[in-house]
Simulated assay, not measured.
Amino acid sequence: MINMLSEMGYEHLTEQQEQGEFYIYFYKKISEHEDSQAASEKVDAVIQSATPVAYPIIMRLLQSEKIRKHINIKELKVWEETEKHLAWITSGKADISFSALITSAKLRNSDIKIPALFVWDNFVLLTRYKAENFQDIKGKEIHTPLFEEAPPAKITKYLIKASGLNPDDFKFVFGSPFGRPEKIYADFVSGQADTVILREPEASYAIKIMQDRGEDISIISFNKIWNEINPGFGSFPNAGLVLKGEFARKHPEETQVFLEELRSAINWVNENRSASAKLAFDMMRQPVDRIELFLDRVNFEYVDGEKLTVKVKQYFDILNQHDVVNMEIDKEFLDIFAI
């Protein structure tokens, strides 16, 4: 918490009250670019994330003097429960969200904008069995995030079927009430689950733990199978930035500053992975070496504008064709991806 608040412009004072008891006081510091009048003119924003893949980016953004100059981060909320995160989007409580694409796109009737995506190819299948493809894990239990009708399970079944196999020959296991990535990851490394679908960063955490133990596992890349089925598609989108539409309309200058700083933060993380791991370890609650592996494996690329719209349309056309989603991909929908 101290590290995160420090990046938000706070200083702290620690006082020991008695043996084993400390009080920590936080107070806002004024930067060389900020005075009281300027601070009062800044735009308030509530920022949230339920996808830990974005945490290194968020920590770098919190260091931005440009953002501090233009935006007062009124609240920064980090959720473990996706459903609560989505409730803040639909209610308009969150101005800026870091969220998964498919989940957010289903909120098309809400007042939202998705001007940029920056997380690509985010899912893999890990198994303790020797496996190169789905055929090799036929009949095995696959511990899967969320629930049966959610995107991870439906995309996996699409990939299985498109690979010439029957999804009914695979047993998908879900948690109650949902399959939480944190629980699936913990079950895999503890040996309670042999085959799992994981997003980043949990996939890299699991891989690093198994490497350190000297235990062999197999990694099946969804991106590799996706491109075998859809030749030349390239990376498929996973997550990005979701803005409250009202915020983007009322504060175009601040929105542009945030987008520019987001692009800059992504570039910095890609070019400074070791420093980024050290910056983010407190927020991610993992050892630096696991975060470094995650940053080596994750695919961060800032994409916006026409390139984004084209890729999103291609992606949802495929998902619609194979009943992964049922969404009308019209001009109104695609306009969500433009400011």
Rank of each mutant, 00 (worst) to 15 (best):
K93Y: 15
K93W: 12
K93M: 12
D95C: 03
S97G: 00
S97A: 00
S97I: 01
F98R: 05
F98T: 02
F98V: 03
S99R: 04
L101K: 04
I102S: 05
I102K: 04
T103K: 11
T103E: 08
T103A: 14
S104T: 08
S104F: 00
S104V: 04
A105Q: 15
A105T: 15
K106C: 10
L107N: 13
L107W: 06
L107T: 09
L107F: 11
N109A: 08
N109V: 14
S110A: 12
D111T: 15
I112N: 09
K113R: 09
K113M: 06
K113Q: 06
I114V: 06
I114M: 06
I114N: 02
I114G: 02
I114H: 00
P115H: 00
A116R: 02
A116Y: 02
A116H: 02
F118W: 05
F118A: 01
F118T: 03
V119H: 01
W120V: 00
W120G: 01
D121S: 14
N122A: 02
F123T: 12
F123S: 08
V124T: 11
V124G: 05
V124N: 08
L125N: 12
L125F: 14
L126S: 15
L126K: 10
T127Q: 07
R128G: 13
R128N: 15
K130Q: 10
K130E: 15
K130C: 10
K130Y: 11
A131Y: 05
A131K: 02
A131Q: 04
A131V: 04
E132R: 06
E132I: 04
E132N: 09
E132S: 09
E132K: 05
N133M: 07
N133K: 08
N133H: 09
Q135N: 13
D136L: 08
D136H: 07
I137E: 10
K138L: 05
K138A: 01
K138F: 00
K138E: 03
G139K: 01
K140F: 12
E141R: 09
E141M: 08
E141N: 13
I142R: 04
I142G: 03
I142Y: 05
I142M: 07
H143I: 14
T144V: 10
T144P: 14
T144E: 09
P145K: 12
L146I: 06
L146C: 07
L146A: 13
F147H: 13
F147L: 10
E148G: 03
E149V: 13
E149M: 09
E149H: 09
A150F: 11
A150P: 10
A150L: 12
P151E: 06
P152R: 04
P152M: 08
A153D: 07
A153K: 07
K154W: 05
K154Q: 15
K154M: 09
I155G: 07
I155M: 10
I155N: 05
T156G: 10
T156D: 07
K157V: 01
L159F: 05
I160A: 08
I160C: 10
I160V: 09
K161W: 13
K161T: 15
K161Q: 09
A162D: 00
A162V: 03
